[in-house]
Computed example of a mutant assay.
Amino acid sequence: MKIVARCHPALKDLIPAPMPAEKALPDWLRTMPGEVEAESMGGERLRTLKQCPPLLDALGLGVLIPLPCDIRVEGGSFHWDWAFPAITDAPLTRAPLGAHLPEQAIGAPLPLGPGQLAIKFTNYWTLEAPEGWQLLVTHPMNRAELPFLTLSGLVGGDRFGLGYVHFPALWTDPDFEGVLPRGTPVAQVIPVPRDRPGLEIATMTEAEIARSRAIQEELQAEPGVYRKKFRR
């Protein structure tokens, strides 16, 4: 299973490349403590999110698409200045940001105020997946510190591998002023099978109840059981 990311040759040395998400974990994860004292529990030592394998695995899933250039935000407006080349053989815009009108989201439960635009990150990479695979494009997992929220979408990576998929997003921090730096992850791309899984509803057998209880008791007895015995 491999995602192939391609860019126009004129942009090869200009834009940062997509990267495996596991190689670009957020700085806050690196700097946060692994354990803390919980004052509300009399100073008891508790493990933090840093020791939660499911959260870590979600952060490292698939690939991240980076912002192609610095975006300067001043007074609610967006500015950029980069040496985008003249490209005559492909319909590529030099604008790293576009916009969606609020009317396009009428009826959707999105936090768009009157006259507020939804932005759209321009993606300069085509993304191809093997036959039978689609690409789930979503906000970078567990990255609430970003001043935007990328909306989720599913793209047929096995059929649309040479098409450009751009990323609609909501700007969620109206007080943000400064620079959103080049390389900031704007979308996480996760391959999923085209064939949808079925669903079976069942009740536990006595043996399954006993096994489930044993697992829960083992998890409570010592730290790291899930990571050591169940994680791949």
Rank of each mutant, 00 (worst) to 15 (best):
M1K: 12
R6M: 04
P9W: 13
L14Q: 01
I15E: 02
P16D: 07
A17S: 08
P20L: 12
P20M: 10
A21R: 00
A21H: 00
K23E: 14
A24Y: 03
A24R: 10
D27T: 06
D27C: 01
D27P: 00
L29I: 10
L29K: 00
T31Q: 01
M32K: 01
M32T: 10
P33F: 01
E39I: 13
G42L: 02
E44H: 06
R47H: 03
T48F: 09
P54M: 04
D57P: 00
D57I: 06
C69D: 09
D70R: 03
R72N: 07
E74C: 03
G75Y: 08
G76C: 06
F78C: 06
W80C: 06
W82A: 02
A83T: 13
F84D: 03
A86K: 15
I87A: 11
I87D: 07
T88M: 04
T88Y: 04
P91G: 10
P91Y: 11
T93Q: 08
R94C: 11
R94T: 07
A99W: 14
A99T: 13
A99S: 12
I106E: 13
L112I: 08
Q116Y: 01
Q116D: 05
A118F: 08
I119C: 06
K120Q: 10
T122H: 08
N123K: 11
Y124C: 04
W133D: 05
L135E: 05
A144G: 09
A144F: 15
F148V: 12
S152N: 09
V155Y: 08
G156K: 12
V165C: 12
H166C: 05
P168L: 06
W171S: 10
T172N: 10
T172I: 15
D173R: 15
E177K: 12
L180A: 05
G183S: 09
G183H: 09
V189E: 01
V189T: 04
V192D: 09
R194T: 14
G198C: 06
L199E: 07
I201W: 08
M204A: 13
A210S: 10
S212T: 14
A214G: 11
Q216A: 14
E217N: 04
E218T: 00
E218L: 03
Q220H: 07
A221E: 09
R227L: 13
K228P: 00
R231K: 15
R231G: 02
